[in-house]
Design a protein around this nucleic acid. Structure first.
Lengths: 125, 125
DNA sequence: CCGAATCCGTAACGATACTG
DNA sequence: CAGTATCGTTACGGATTCGG
């Protein structure tokens, strides 16, 4: 009867936080959102060139995911050659401040974190 | 000469944001941080039971990762049976407000996001 | 030019059994 | 109690090829 009452977590499907982190936590989503925040509107290949190291496939997949969540708006201009533009939706923009806050935190703490990792490695030598 | 100047991103190694997201973006880190934020100090098995669906292996791996980044402090009591406690470091706590902000955003937008996904599915029927 | 489709290697993840 | 060790599966991501 003395056991602590600890929150039961881990019902992943119904956890909103996890649903969000699952998306922005992947390899490219956050980068794309921050990029679109800077540039307002970008074509597919502009994003591709800007990120540089992303493959076409992952760019397609990631943009679809962001579009399906209503964070990014996709506009197709039916012309030859085709032209597709991407921009943040209001919902996407509403997420932005939190991402920027995280970015700022990352910049402030990165060097210390790297130092911690190096120290941790040494301890397990 | 008319080409837009778009930020070059994607040099992942040196990007602080990605370094952070890589860690808290995995399957369990954020959940553990939020749990420790609520409970202050927890033993290994308490975390294990609380999350429920995490395997011992992944709990070990995730805690090590958080410890190596200096976000979580690990305290071993050399006794039989062993006792190990985990708690957030100041650095871990400094990350907390941003995670909570994300949580709040997630709670507010989850239903709309789910609706968007459903709508998106229908469009591609 | 903007993707879709396919193949394939790796790494993340999970289940289980075992140890000090 | 708090992990390690091993194995099998699955999902992610990259390279390449094809299509409208």
């Amino acid at each position: 009867m003395n056991e602590k009452k600890i929150k039961k977590m881990g019902n992943i499907e119904n956890c909103p936080v996890r649903n969000v982190i699952d998306r922005i936590g992947d390899k490219w989503s956050m980068l794309i959102i921050l990029l679109l925040a800077d540039e307002q509107v970008l074509r597919f290949n502009e994003i591709h060139k800007s990120i540089g190291t992303i493959s076409q496939k992952m760019l397609t997949v990631t943009l679809k995911s962001l579009e399906s969540d209503g964070l990014v708006k996709r506009t197709v201009y039916p012309q030859i050659p085709p032209k597709v533009e991407y921009e943040l939706t209001p919902r996407g923009k509403s997420l932005l401040p939190h991402l920027l806050a995280l970015t700022e935190w990352a910049n402030k703490n990165m060097s210390n974190i790297k130092a911690s990792r190096a120290q941790y490695e040494k301890s397990n030598a």
